[in-house]
Design a protein around this nucleic acid. Structure first.
Lengths: 251, 251
DNA sequence: GAGTGGTCTAGACCACCTT
DNA sequence: AGGTGGTCTAGACCACTCA
């Protein structure tokens, strides 16, 4: 039996839109009204289901919508939570994650997940202008804001520029280490950004479901000789970042 | 009856992952292998359902995943199609949409959807530094690449700077009109970007389902007097754009 | 161990696009 | 008119988290 109109579980949504949109609006309103504060946990899907008088699938559609909008997020098999505000990233400023997150009154943290020497793939060897298979340092890090993981990054560095890099502490600013310990001077930064989906490996580390939307930010920094100092691929939760660029006419 | 293992509809996915991921991988592979070219239509959901031996909901989950990744997109109630490549947007370059899209070998088009004088809301009046309720020009445009709508924009301009603007043709570069006809000179550009969901009004114009992921790009341009020349909110399909910024040390 | 979300089934009706 | 995706139901079992 499909949609038994005889029992009218809940008033059909005003305006005739889908039920899941009506539920979405209801939850969105109580978030904006502050009844659900940032970080607060939503009722369970089965509770919402009872309250709304719809099937669980419909409830989940409303939740997916809110997730896509960045209003809520999930912790795998734990529940749905109200998203905290996003931080602003400005690629024209040269401060690192730890700095600009703190400047915005939030608490940044970095955890080094992996560090190793690995042979360069075709794409990477091209960027570093080395032969494919050349051993490069690859560092994996997980960065959090106020205790919530927001990005996973994979940093590649040429050992020729920073021999023994992996023996240093990598839980702070890597750029700072490269500058202070190895005298590397970045004079050019290239930044690429694009919406993406978080694939399994990344999603697992962030504790989100594979396939949730994200933002890929790729930074490539060069020294005066045009050599790549640092190649950094950052996979962000899509609701944790916004980008801001301020530009004046120049030469 | 749930998951009748007795009939094993399709070999359970290698590695033990979910079925929808296996189907996703299968479709992704045939796209990457070129068996499904950019713009090609996928088989219908019910055909895929039969082929994969799963329920339609599972098929749709695989399709949603691919959509989130930007590999495919849908035309409302028409079908699923392979996404064309994204265009690159560089906020540090001052060329407009028509120019940079054409430079990348694609065919740009603009259609003016609406133009009117409307009273400034609180947020907008703040940006333009006018009293709330002041009449401002608001222009709605739909922009396409190779015939596929990729963004909806809402441009706000202060009539004090460009009286009679709405009488001009607005289907080309608006910045050019403002420069040539009104002598406005932009010396500063502020750009904000963040992932978002496309809400109903926008989604309808783009012909996508409400709630599909998008990218909001807000450009604010200023003249030498610090006055806002143009305030432009662009809602992009998330799979149509990537952002590229190249920065050198400077003053 | 109770409860949560994650995955899946097998249907149904509808609004809309396409031909 | 026939086919498409969009929405929805009412179940089920599973892997995992949390207390």
């Amino acid at each position: 039996m499909a949609r038994p109109d005889s029992m009218i579980p809940l008033a059909p949504p005003e305006g005739g839109g889908p039920h899941y949109i009506a539920l979405r609006d209801q939850i969105a309103t109580s978030i904006e009204a502050g009844q659900l504060a940032a970080g607060a946990k939503l009722p369970s899907e089965r509770q919402l289901q009872t309250g709304a008088g719809t099937a669980r699938g419909t409830v989940r559609e409303a939740l997916f919508q809110l997730e896509a909008e960045g209003l809520i997020y999930r912790r795998e098999r734990s529940g749905w939570y109200v998203s905290p505000p996003a931080v602003t990233y400005d690629p024209t400023r040269w401060s690192g994650f730890m700095t600009y997150v703190a400047e915005q009154g939030r608490r940044p943290a970095t955890r080094t997940v992996s560090k190793e020497s690995a042979p360069a793939t075709a794409a990477v060897s091209d960027i570093f202008r080395v032969a494919p298979g050349t051993l490069l340092y690859v560092i994996g890090r997980l960065r959090s804001i106020d205790g919530r993981p927001v990005l996973v990054e994979k940093i590649t560095v040429d050992p020729a520029l920073a021999p023994g890099l992996l023996d240093h502490s990598l839980d702070g600013s890597l750029t700072q280490v490269l500058t202070r310990e190895y005298g590397a001077t970045v004079i050019r930064n290239r930044v690429d950004m694009r919406p993406c989906a978080l694939i399994k490996t990344v999603a697992d580390e962030l504790g989100v479901k594979s396939g949730t939307p994200g933002l890929l930010v790729v930074r490539t920094s060069f020294d005066a000789g045009g050599r790549v100092v640092e190649y950094d691929q950052e996979y962000w939760r899509h609701d944790a970042i916004r980008v801001h660029v301020d530009l004046s006419v120049r030469g």
